[in-house]
Design a protein around this nucleic acid. Structure first.
Lengths: 341, 341
DNA sequence: GACCAAATTGAAATCGATTTGGTTATGAAA
DNA sequence: TTTCATAACCAAATCGATTTCAATTTGGTC
């Protein structure tokens, strides 16, 4: 059913009907009520694409998905969904072809210019992220999940990675650990950098040296957690504690420690970052995992919220949210036991 | 830059330009080449929403996401993305509000009628799934990931859940297990039903009784895996083997067994279903996990492919793909050890 | 009763493409 | 030379809404 037809049935002009449904004030309440009611009864719904063409508003938020298909992603999206379900806004997932830089920039450019979305959420930004510069330059509304050092102003929501890791590391130092390994995310992203800084600054504030042999970077998989942990533990001067970037990494570390007959929580301490997944909980691990915790889902919800605010006219300049991260101590951390020879 | 403007710059009519770019035959190759080249140079791209309005084609596939935010979902989408990245098609993720039935039906109806997507992928179908009936009735192209018993014809791609679980269960029986627990997915979905059937038919073909005390249903979380396994193992006549629905469940079962001092692979055998995640691999678990395996990502890729075929005119009636599932035996399964008193 | 402001309603232009149904030029066949 | 098919191009209608600008009605005031 089209507007014209529907309007005719009501004995009104398309103009009035359109106004009634869009909530304009210059329609009498009596008429509006009738229009709304009849729209439901006759099943009239404005054609989305006509509305989009005419108004320029799309009612969609774009999220670019890398090919890695990381497990955080689903949680973040579920969080966004939670907020957007009441709004009439949907989520457009744009597959990213090449992890190659030029291709990625092209993708963002096309996305921004194609009027397919009203706003874009940028993930895992880099310190000097040209995507941000591009979007800014194009005037496309966007929100960064994470942060960037780039001089271009950008609205962001981030968690305090640096502070979280600093506290985690400091805590381990307080427990007497002197050789603390760090298994970080992939190099390049700001969050990995911030965690690195947190780690280093904790060590330095205690006057301890940073041993590059105890630092590793890579995807958040149990495989890598295992491999890195294992190779660290087999060094002549093995670490007695680990700071890790994800739950999956922690699973790998647990395995590595067990495979060497080491007891977690006494021989080796572990703190990992927990994004709070419904399907894998730090508290349930054995021994339960000490973690820096921040809900990915909540971040998704809030990001969706902020984007909506952005679209409603709130200034991007004032949107900077830094979320504190909880440090939750459980059984996987304990005082250093004995000096290993 | 608009078509009109662009056409003027070329000294051509909008008609010809549009045709040149859309690859119609009635444009000379010389002209076409020039148009394409200039389009790139001047950065002309047709307005998506105008195209959508005029042609009725959207270039998007819809996927409804439940609030659970399951970890499979990201893999499936990553798979879709792999196929769609070359196509000019994007993925629309539609958040589902209530898990309430009527609301869900409304959502599908709105989605189908709103012209926001060209096709829909339906997940976790139920045996008698009214969403399928609805989409069929509305004439909206769709593909079911999974299957339904409903009498309405529908194109689907599914894995052989029944066969997989039957083989897994049979294998455990062959190893001498007589009390085999089954931790299945949530009741209601066809796949859970099929797995249940596979489980029962294996037992029955060996003349064994089905003990309802050894069957549980629930979300795929390590928490539930633990709780169910634990309660089973504390029964007077505990199981000596488990068939489980997911890797996360398996993690929970491992924990439960360990917490009771039981050795996996000897005291207790475990086979779980593995969707093949990059971040958590069955082979790396300790002991390595025997699994029924089928790549979720590959399914996503193929589903995207099938949807494209559907949109290209292939008959929905002939699209039925049943993927075999591998059974990969590793260390978590072994012969039954001794009778426990 | 005339006048004017406020409250409603409508006609028509507009968003930016695609596509139908021509028109014009070219060259071969009659 | 005329006719006709073919190739190449174009004017205008169309998709289905929103919104500008103008018209009409209503009700209050003098």
């Amino acid at each position: 059913m089209k507007l014209k037809e529907f309007a005719k049935q009501l004995g009104l002009s398309p103009t009035t009907v359109s106004r009634a449904l869009s909530g304009y004030p210059e329609v009498s309440e009596v008429t509006r009520a009738r229009v709304v009611q009849e729209a439901v009864r006759l099943g009239y719904r404005p054609n989305v694409n006509a509305v989009r063409l005419k108004t320029g508003r799309v009612g969609a938020i774009g999220v670019v998905m890398g090919r890695a298909g990381e497990f955080h992603f689903a949680e973040f999206m579920a969080g966004m969904a939670e907020r957007l379900v009441t709004e009439d806004t949907d989520i457009l997932v744009i597959p990213m072809a090449d992890p190659e830089y030029d291709a990625e920039m092209q993708l963002y450019r096309r996305l921004a210019e194609s009027q397919r979305v009203d706003a874009i959420i940028v993930h895992s930004p880099r310190p000097n992220d040209q995507r941000i510069a591009l979007l800014h330059e194009l005037g496309m509304p966007f929100l960064v999940h994470g942060r960037s050092d780039i001089e271009v102003p950008h609205p962001w929501l981030d968690i305090d990675n640096e502070g979280a890791v600093r506290r985690a590391t400091s805590h381990l130092i307080d427990l007497g650990h002197t050789r603390i390994a760090m298994i970080n995310g992939r190099q390049g992203a700001t969050y990995a950098l911030h965690r690195d800084i947190g780690y280093r600054s904790a060590l330095q504030s205690y006057g301890m040296e940073v041993d590059p042999q105890l630092i590793a970077n890579g995807n958040f998989t149990d495989e890598l957690g295992f491999r890195f942990a294992r190779s660290f533990l087999e060094q002549p001067k093995p670490p007695t504690a680990f700071v890790a970037g994800s739950m999956m990494t922690a699973l790998g570390i647990y395995r590595a420690a067990r495979s060497l007959g080491l007891q977690i929580g006494s021989d080796v301490s572990v703190i990992a970052h927990d994004d709070v997944f419904p399907y894998l909980t730090a508290d349930n691990m054995v021994p339960s995992l000490s973690a820096t915790r921040s809900s990915m889902r909540a971040a998704g919800t809030r990001c969706a919220d902020l984007v909506l605010q952005l679209l409603a006219g709130r200034s991007p300049l004032e949107i900077h949210e830094l979320w504190p991260v909880e440090l939750i101590l459980r059984e996987s951390t304990g005082p250093v036991r004995a000096l290993q020879t």
